[in-house]
Computed example of a mutant assay.
Amino acid sequence: MNDRPGTGEAPKSPEADGMTLFSYLLAGPLVFGGAGWLADWLLGLSTVFLPIGVLLGMAGAIYLIVVPYVRS
């Protein structure tokens, strides 16, 4: 993170980081699970793509959380 004055970026609060992590963990599986449900519905399948979408969404959310915080 850049702590130099004059960069135009306000310092983040710990609550903002927590809400960001929570929103990633919630939105990832919901969006990709919804896409999987839609694919199942359009293709007439029972539940093939829904669990795949949820797992991919969770993996993507964890990736978006781990990469920035491990590198900083």
Rank of each mutant, 00 (worst) to 15 (best):
M1D: 14
M1E: 13
N2W: 12
R4V: 13
R4Q: 13
R4I: 13
G6A: 09
G6D: 08
G6Q: 07
G6H: 10
T7A: 12
G8F: 06
G8T: 08
E9I: 15
E9G: 10
A10Y: 07
A10F: 06
A10M: 09
P11A: 12
P11V: 04
S13E: 10
S13W: 05
P14L: 06
P14H: 04
A16D: 09
A16F: 11
D17W: 08
D17N: 08
D17C: 02
D17K: 11
D17M: 06
D17P: 00
G18Q: 08
G18P: 04
G18F: 07
G18L: 11
G18Y: 01
G18E: 01
M19S: 05
M19G: 05
M19I: 07
M19V: 06
M19C: 04
M19P: 02
T20P: 01
T20S: 13
L21N: 14
L21A: 14
S23K: 09
S23F: 10
L25M: 15
L26G: 08
A27V: 13
A27F: 12
A27S: 14
A27E: 03
A27T: 12
G28M: 06
G28Q: 02
P29M: 07
P29S: 06
P29Q: 04
L30H: 01
L30W: 02
V31M: 10
V31I: 15
V31E: 01
F32C: 09
F32R: 06
G34K: 00
G34L: 00
G34R: 05
G34W: 04
A35R: 03
W37T: 07
L38M: 15
L38H: 02
D40R: 04
D40F: 02
W41M: 10
W41Y: 14
W41C: 01
L42R: 11
L43P: 02
G44C: 01
V48I: 09
V48C: 02
V48M: 02
F49V: 04
L50V: 06
P51D: 02
P51V: 01
P51K: 03
I52P: 03
I52G: 00
G53W: 01
G53P: 05
G53C: 05
G53I: 00
V54N: 00
V54Q: 03
L55H: 07
L56R: 00
G57F: 04
G57V: 01
G57A: 01
G57M: 01
G57Q: 00
M58S: 14
M58A: 15
M58P: 06
A59Q: 00
A59R: 01
G60I: 00
G60S: 06
A61P: 01
A61F: 05
A61Y: 06
Y63A: 15
Y63N: 08
L64V: 09
I65L: 11
I65E: 04
I65P: 02
I65R: 07
V66C: 09
V66W: 15
V66K: 08
V67K: 14
P68V: 07
P68L: 04
Y69I: 08
Y69M: 10
Y69P: 01
R71A: 12
R71E: 11
R71H: 09
R71I: 10
